[in-house]
Design a protein around this nucleic acid. Structure first.
Lengths: 326, 326
DNA sequence: TTGAAAGCGGTACCAC
DNA sequence: GTGGTACCGCTTTCAA
């Protein structure tokens, strides 16, 4: 920076202004400084800037697994908003491990990120406590959190699953299978689904849990459907806690020569790309994955700029998308 | 940090050492400092550390689109290695826009990242020039780059596609369709495929380009297959430049009531999760997506630690996975 | 093994 | 509109 200042014949302060608050500098000097910077290939050191100013312009995001498609739209939405606001995204995966989660959050705080977005709610007590004391803006997403650490953008997984069950019941299905992922949201979905089924006086769904959250959901979905067909061939409709599981389940039906939805219906959750194109296309629940990400980003940015001290929880809602698989 | 120093009755330097080079501090003082830090909830400011030291411990990664599954295994592999080495991942998406790409790379350099990994090669001249002059370790991936900016981990897309063509020819297919993505690697794959087809004295493949790289490849693959079936019903086998396109194409065949591979064969590329589970499962090309990411991370870490000044290009190779779709 | 002090490269407040 | 200058919070010689 000093080189640029000398080259342009101005002070350090002026060079700094040209890059951070150009409107405070006269047209003329601005030009001179910018040319000097270009000539010297000067790129302002944002790290130094972060330290001197108080903001890092970095947002940390934490997902269970980067390779899983479930949250990628959310992260993409987050990233898009941040890019536009000239913020950077720091991304990490916890691998479903609470200790890993804690150490990642510590790293984020150590970096003095301006905000943290987590996929799902933060469940491990040490992690919650850490964030609670840190005072950094935090957004928990993809579920309604009764007692959020800070901000919350999501929807009621319980309600969404209840509505799904009622939808299936209204279509005439009576005997249900339920393929469930291992995350907390899947638990909530099971609760909601079960409640609606029981309320309708129908038998409880046959619940099959997937083996490992780390493996491909498409494969797990197939394996789970295999079990259901083995244990309860009379099952009429299977609800899966995400579209990857549902697609895997659908393929398993095809493999066994079963017609969907005539022999057995399949319903997914999340409205991922894949649900739109399978044959038959999957009935699913739209949850505004991308919107959750962009919303979370906006809430953090607003908070940073002091627009509102406390943001109310945002309910992004859901809607059932009826396709051919039910 | 000063508070901790006072609390523990030591100097700033000692506190610093406890967190960065604990082996230089006596067991006793180390304990005292750590306890003090815990009591005060002290988290070292890594930003300040980055500035004082010379390393940021941040690696920047640039992909065309975060929501696309193509590179997610690579990013995940990258992230895993970095996490273990206590580095952070900064992720951005260019949205297939060269100007965006440039501005993201500038931001990375402004952050003084210790290394940059790009999905694919950097093509726009200004971006290349920027990185060339920066001196930051750079890894271009997923393709063999004749004149890399710095390091290179990938494979020959041309050879992989040639091998695919020969594989299909050996299976007896003669009339080919080719569904092509818009990226450079897809172009290379077309070259390789075409060469092998022509070398065998067969007619050139019918090439269909997808409309927009931004839309879902699954949908685009279906649309492209639709066109092929319309324009050249006699096509015997369709090669797609990635598995999402292939899956989309496969579903379109199902929609039209065509049997795969009996009526028409479909082959994909990349060996994504989905190719394993569709019915029929997709023949594809395995390219070690995850390995590319972990390898890239390791190369950068080695470089940072001065293990080798210049790393040779790494060829991760490829292999054809024969499944039921051909 | 520990401490003192000079930076690292900016920002932002205060004068002029 | 521009310049001077205390920091920001840590790392890293150099000495003790």
């Amino acid at each position: 920076m000093e080189d640029v200042a000398v080259e342009a014949g101005v002070s350090l302060a002026t060079v700094s202004r040209v890059f951070s608050q150009p409107e405070l500098v006269s047209e003329d000097t601005r030009q001179r400084v910018q040319e000097a910077a270009l000539r010297l290939r000067y790129l302002p050191n944002l790290t130094a800037g972060s330290m001197a100013g108080k903001r890092s312009r970095i947002i940390g995001a934490l997902v269970p697994a980067i390779a899983s498609a479930i949250f990628s739209e959310t992260i993409s939405g987050l990233s898009s908003v941040l890019l536009e606001a000239r913020y950077e995204l720091m991304l990490s995966q916890s691998g479903y491990d609470p200790e890993q989660e804690l150490s990642i959050l510590q790293a984020f705080l150590g970096r003095r990120v301006d905000g943290i977005v987590v996929a799902g709610a933060v469940v491990s007590p040490p992690s919650r406590e850490l964030l609670q004391n840190a005072g950094t803006p935090v957004v928990e997403t993809w579920e309604y959190v009764a007692d959020p650490i800070d901000m919350n953008v999501g929807f009621s997984n319980l309600d969404a699953a209840s509505a799904s069950a009622r939808f299936l019941i209204a279509r005439g299905y009576r005997r249900f299978g339920f393929i469930r992922g291992t995350d907390r949201r899947s638990m909530q979905r099971l609760d909601g689904f079960r409640q609606a089924v029981v309320a309708a006086g129908l038998p409880e769904p046959l619940v099959v849990d997937i083996k490992s959250p780390a493996r491909s959901s498409l494969v797990e979905g197939g394996a789970a459907m295999h079990r259901i067909l083995q244990e309860a061939r009379s099952t009429e409709a299977v609800f899966c806690t995400n579209d990857l599981l549902a697609a895997g389940a659908l393929f398993e039906c095809q493999r066994q020569g079963l017609a969907v939805p005539d022999d057995i219906a399949v319903m997914g959750f999340s409205n991922l790309d894949i649900s739109e194109v399978t044959v038959p296309a999957l009935t699913t629940v739209q949850v505004g994955a991308r919107e959750i990400g962009s919303h979370a980003a906006q809430m953090i940015l607003d908070r940073i700029e002091g627009k509102r001290a406390h943001a109310d929880p945002v309910d992004t809602g859901f809607s059932i998308i009826e396709r051919k698989s039910t």
